[in-house]
């Protein structure tokens, strides 16, 4: 029999654990945006070497499962003398994986802008810096919002993977809850509800941003 009270009781510990889910995916995307911007600059560079580095970065991170990368980072860091808590390894992995997808999102958005947008700026005598900050980036960022929100939702879901290195986020907390109550169905259903609520909120945020930035 499904126990409603066990189901409801599961929410409090899981909500506490949700802070780690949000921390890993939130910090992951924030750092991912920064690293992704840097990778995107390399990918669009005139230098062939820079483009190769970006291509390798992107294809490795997109080609290897995130769980495997997480384990590599988690076990690699101590080997090279860096001893950090599991949460740090989780954030780092999430950020670099996100950076690969984000750099591609931005590269696509920048290349999608009509050539005439830059030409109009060049013809008027604008500096490259102003052309980027005033003409290209505002449009590319607005264009990429839906995909960035999509990426963030994927990261929230993917953050369940970091349970394997011991971070007490929603998924691991629901496993613990199931172990204590011997009622796995209630615990995992509560976890599912929490993920759903978080991601519906993010989707709503995305629609709001998209609407606000629409020209």
């Amino acid at each position: 029999m499904f126990s409603l009270s066990t189901f409801l009781d599961a929410f409090w510990p899981l909500t506490l654990a949700a802070r780690y889910t949000l921390l890993v995916s939130g910090l992951g995307i924030a750092l991912g945006l920064v690293i992704g911007a840097f990778v995107c600059v390399l990918a669009l560079s005139k230098s062939r070497a820079a483009r190769t580095v970006a291509a390798l970065w992107v294809s490795y991170l997109r080609g290897v499962p995130m769980l495997v990368q997480l384990l590599v980072v988690f076990f690699l860091l101590p080997v090279i003398g860096i001893n950090v808590p599991a949460i740090v390894a989780a954030v780092v992995t999430t950020a670099i994986v996100a950076s690969a997808y984000i750099s591609e999102i931005w590269r696509g958005a920048i290349l999608a802008l009509p050539r005439g947008q830059t030409e109009a700026a060049i013809a008027i005598g604008m500096r490259p810096r102003d052309t980027w900050t005033r003409i290209i980036l505002p449009q590319a960022v607005a264009l990429s919002i839906p995909q960035l929100i999509n990426e963030l939702i994927l990261l929230v879901k993917a953050s369940s993977l970091v349970s394997v290195v011991g971070v007490m986020e929603i998924t691991r907390a629901s496993q613990a809850q199931a172990g204590v109550t011997f009622r796995p169905l209630e615990a995992y259903l509560a976890a599912a509800c929490l993920y759903l609520v978080i991601n519906l909120c993010l989707a709503a945020l995305g629609r709001w941003l998209e609407h606000r930035m629409a020209v």
Binding site: P114, Q117, A120, I124
Partner: peptide
């Protein structure tokens, strides 16, 4: 030199994220 030469394109190439006035003021 370019800043003293105006150019008008077939596709207008206005900047869509700016108002008409901001487009003109930008340069």
């Amino acid at each position: 030199m370019r800043s003293t030469i105006g150019m008008v394109f077939q596709q207008f190439n206005l900047w869509p994220h700016m108002t008409a006035q901001e487009n003109v003021a930008e340069g």
